[in-house]
């Protein structure tokens, strides 16, 4: 039982990082980014590539992956999504358009990645030794990935809570209209949040590639899980996202171990159903008045 709990927590920590990336993009920039999972896979590909080609550790690769992903996502926001925000007449219209646009982007990315890397699975062996926690052994790579994910999440949380730039971001997340009135450059902050979200997700991808076998088309699965986590934790709520991610990690591990490894998505859906039926505003959200 404690084995399931710890394995679940280790998995959930990485999920938390991925979902935090999506939450920045959806909560602040108001873009429901369905290409989020492809950014994750791209980050994983990058880590795989530098490790197999140059024996560079995936952790060092983060130093390249994160800035690169930031730049790419910032550009995507400026070139593709900003025009949609400008022309949208309502939040609903923006939602439909951004869903279609990012969905298209996700297919284009899958197409490009299949073309570059082929359709097969890829993984590599890094830190594959065992490490003992409470009498059971776990993959060292999982523990390391979890620790780094926690560090990044902590840094992000501190930055959002205690810096002026973080405050601006939270202000836009609460209300873009009012943020504009107090002199915040909403488009600039949104672009920053979108880029940052992409960087966080891609870093999560690089970390997850250390212990998870990826392929070019697996991204949508992660998008789905990240979306469920964000909805469950509450849009724009970092604490909720972390808790929801850990719950999902544990639930998935439990289902995979006890019932059937082929039912992991079903586990996510059960949680999603519960949230939709009882707490659509998120775990810690208050009911809208």
């Amino acid at each position: 039982m404690s084995f399931i709990l710890i394995t679940g927590l280790l998995l959930g920590g990485t999920y938390a990082l991925i979902a935090m990336g999506l939450n920045l993009q959806y909560g602040v920039a108001r873009i429901m980014n369905l290409a989020n999972g492809e950014m994750l896979v791209a980050g994983g590909f990058a880590a795989f590539w530098v490790y197999t080609a140059g024996q560079v550790s995936p952790i060092a690769a983060l130093l390249v992956v994160a800035p690169l992903a930031f730049a790419v996502n910032w550009l995507i926001y400026r070139l593709m999504l900003r025009p949609l925000v400008k022309r949208a007449k309502s939040r609903g219209a923006l939602e439909v358009n951004s869903i279609l646009a990012t969905f298209g982007l996700s297919f284009v990315l899958v197409g490009i990645m299949t073309w570059m890397f082929g359709g097969g699975y890829f993984n590599y062996s890094y830190l594959a030794q065992r490490v003992d926690i409470f009498g059971a052994s776990y993959g060292q790579n999982r523990v390391v990935a979890f620790s780094i994910a926690s560090l990044i999440a902590l840094a992000l949380w501190l930055w959002l809570s205690y810096t002026r730039a973080g405050l601006r971001m939270r202000a836009v997340s609460v209300s873009p209209e009012s943020a504009r009135l107090v002199g915040i450059d909403v488009p600039a902050v949104s672009g920053l949040a979108f880029g940052l979200g992409g960087a966080v997700t891609a870093s999560g991808g690089a970390l997850i590639s250390m212990f998870f076998t990826l392929d070019a088309s697996v991204g949508v699965m992660f998008t789905m899980k990240a979306l469920i986590i964000v909805i469950m934790g509450g849009v724009g709520d970092i604490r909720g996202t972390i808790v929801a991610a850990l719950i999902l990690g544990i639930a998935e591990t439990f289902v995979a171990r006890v019932i059937d490894p082929g039912l992991t998505l079903a586990a996510a859906y059960v949680l999603f159903l519960g949230v939709l039926l009882f707490r659509p505003q998120g775990l810690f959200g208050s009911k809208p008045t």
């Binding site: 358009n97 646009a101 298209g104 297919f107 284009v108 899958v110 197409g111 490009i112 073309w115 088309s217």
Partner: peptide, 17 residues
């Protein structure tokens, strides 16, 4: 046959933009 997803993606973008 490997480019069908690319086609799908481009079609989505075409519709939006």
């Amino acid at each position: 046959p490997n480019q069908t997803l690319l086609l799908l993606g481009v079609a989505f973008l075409l519709i939006v933009y």
